[in-house]
């Protein structure tokens, strides 16, 4: 991988293409897992790889490339989220004006995750606060260690551990509450 990075730094566009092949799946999944809507994932991924190329010369190789990749993806997703929340509020206003019931339109994410249990858990994760959701995703879905997570989010390792634990507890509580209320199918 390092030789691909070096070649890309030197201007080898094909080498960069190979890096995209290698990491695009990771970027897309991570973006989706932390809450980027499925429709927007390709846009976020494109912006991530453009940004990485722009700043590739700054990558010194001391830290892990994947850590750097997660960090950039997180930043792009946040920027995108800010833009989209503004668009979303305008779209919802438009829908209300056109008497379209938003609740009858099933989000693409829900169509994608056909298993009801998966859909509910995904929704619960998205309901967590950022500070819990991101460590949970990185730890359970991206297999990052606490140390690696601490580098991505810029927090102490002990803080990461606490956040993963609390996030996990909150998830368990949500699922338990839904079971008490009569199942997860209403979720």
């Amino acid at each position: 991988m390092h030789h691909l990075i070096d070649s890309a730094k030197a201007g080898d566009i094909d080498a960069y293409g190979q890096l995209i092949d290698q990491f695009s799946g990771t970027v897309e999944r991570f973006a989706f897992q932390i809450g980027v809507s499925y429709d927007d994932v390709p846009d976020v991924s494109q912006e991530v790889f453009l940004r990485i190329y722009r700043f590739l010369h700054q990558f010194d190789g001391e830290s892990s490339f994947s850590t750097w990749l997660y960090k950039i993806t997180l930043n792009v997703a946040r920027d995108y989220g800010r833009k989209q929340s503004s668009i979303k509020s305008k779209t919802e206003l438009l829908k209300r004006q056109q008497n379209i019931d938003a609740s009858v339109v099933e989000p693409i994410e829900m169509q994608l995750l056909r298993d009801e249990e998966d859909r509910y858990l995904y929704q619960c994760i998205q309901e967590l606060k950022d500070k819990y959701r991101i460590p949970i995703v990185l730890h359970y879905f991206q297999d990052l260690t606490y140390q690696e997570i601490s580098k991505v989010i810029g927090a102490k390792e002990s803080t990461v551990k606490v956040r993963v634990l609390r996030g996990r507890n909150q998830l368990a509580d949500k699922i338990n509450n839904s079971l008490v209320k009569g199942g997860i199918n209403h979720g």
């Binding site: 799946g25 897309e28 999944r29 989706f32 494109q46």
Partner: peptide
């Protein structure tokens, strides 16, 4: 489930 989602990045 999520790992099965196909990549759509336009290289």
């Amino acid at each position: 489930s999520m790992d099965g989602i196909p990549s759509r990045t336009d290289k």
